[in-house]
Structures are given as C-alpha cells and as structure tokens.
Amino acid sequence: MSIETAYNILYMGSLIIFAILIGVMLVRSVIGPRITDRILSVNMIGTMIICCIVILSRYLDEGYLVDVALIYAMISFVSVLIYASTYIPARPGRRPLDGRKKTRRKGDRRNDAYDPYEESEEPGPVYAGREAEEAPWAREAWRRQTGRMPAAAVSPEKESIRNDSSNEFGNDFTDGIKKGVKKDFKKDNRSGSAGFGSGFTKVPKGGRQ
C-alpha cells in the first residue's frame, strides 16, 4: 500500500463520516422545537462543512479551497449575527417576554422607557414644566386614566417639585435628587446582558426529549 492510497482512504472515510453527521444535524434542524435549536444546528452544519472543505483541499491538492473555507466561516458567523439582530430587541427598556409586567409596582417609573412588547396607548396631552403646577387636575386625570404618573411631569430644576414631600408623587427620581444622588437611569433599565440566571439546573417539563 502506498502513502497516497492511505491518505486517500483516510480523507474519504472522514468525508463520509462528516456527511453522515451533517445529515443527522439536518434532522435536528427539522424537529428542533424552538428557533434556537434550528439556528444551532445550522451553525454546527457550517462548522462541519468547513472541515469538509479543508479536507477536500488536501484531497484534491488545491490550495485555494482553504480560502473558500475561511470565507464560509465568516459568512456563517455573520448569519448568526443577523438572526440575533432579528430576534433581540434593541431598545433601552427591553426585557424578555417573561410576563414581568405583572410585577410593576404602582408609581414605579423605571419601566417608562419605550417597550416594544407593550401595546401603545393614546397618551393625550402631557402637562409638563410650569403647567404641571398650574394644572394639577390634568395630572390627576392622566394618573386616573393610565394608572401611572406622566413621564415628563418631573423636572429636576423645579424648586417647587424638589421641595415637594408628598408621598403620592414619590418616585426614585425626585427622591434621588433631593438626596443629591445621581441616579443612573440606564443602569436600572433591564438590558439583556445580565440576565442568564444562575444555572441550567432544571429539566424541561416533559422530561428528557
């Protein structure tokens, strides 16, 4: 047996096994119950195809196929980024579809940033600034209608609001300003990067698949 025959047998065997593995991953992309299972299987198929291309480059002794494999790796990475940009909301007040709306406290203004998962209400006119003190009836009407304070009702420069110690307008923004603490609005909003939880300990409800 010559060296070339041995190499050919090795490469052909590897290619056949990779082809079988790619077919098996295609099955996962069909039956995977969630979108992320399918994205994962496509990503893995891409990785295995990169291996196939570089094996072919040695089998056929063509050096340029490695460049093809490099470009394919870049394309498969960019495809996952595009999937992610489609499904991950990019707003400052973003949060998962976990039903966390139920846990809003009354007067909690942290979630007043625009949330794509909340249905939009008709806000009506907002009485802010100087008009806010002159028209408390409008603020009360807004509060009765929507169940929360108007977003632009509080401004930190206003002396009267700063000295206002009534509890019904109590929110962290003015409290923080009264105490002289700068409140980082962005940090309180839920962003996705801190949200993976403490572990993957549970088995799904149907048992193992």
């Binding site: 969630r34 979108i35 992320t36 994205i39 994962l40 990503n43 996952v80 980024l81 999937y83 992610a84 499904y87 991950i88 909301p89 973003r94 998962p96 579809l97 976990d98 039903g99 996705g192 949200g195 993976f196 939880g197 572990g199 993957f200 300990t201 549970k202 799904p204 409800k205």
Partner: peptide, 17 residues
C-alpha cells in the same frame, strides 16, 4: 448570541432556568 435569542424569545423561561 444564540443564548441571548433564547432568553429574549422564550416566554416560558422560568420553567427551564
């Protein structure tokens, strides 16, 4: 990114994690 997609699109996340 795939983990983030799962986090943002699964409404039933608390039963798994």
């Amino acid at each position: 990114f795939m983990g983030q997609i799962e986090y943002f699109t699964n409404p039933d996340l608390s039963s798994y994690l």
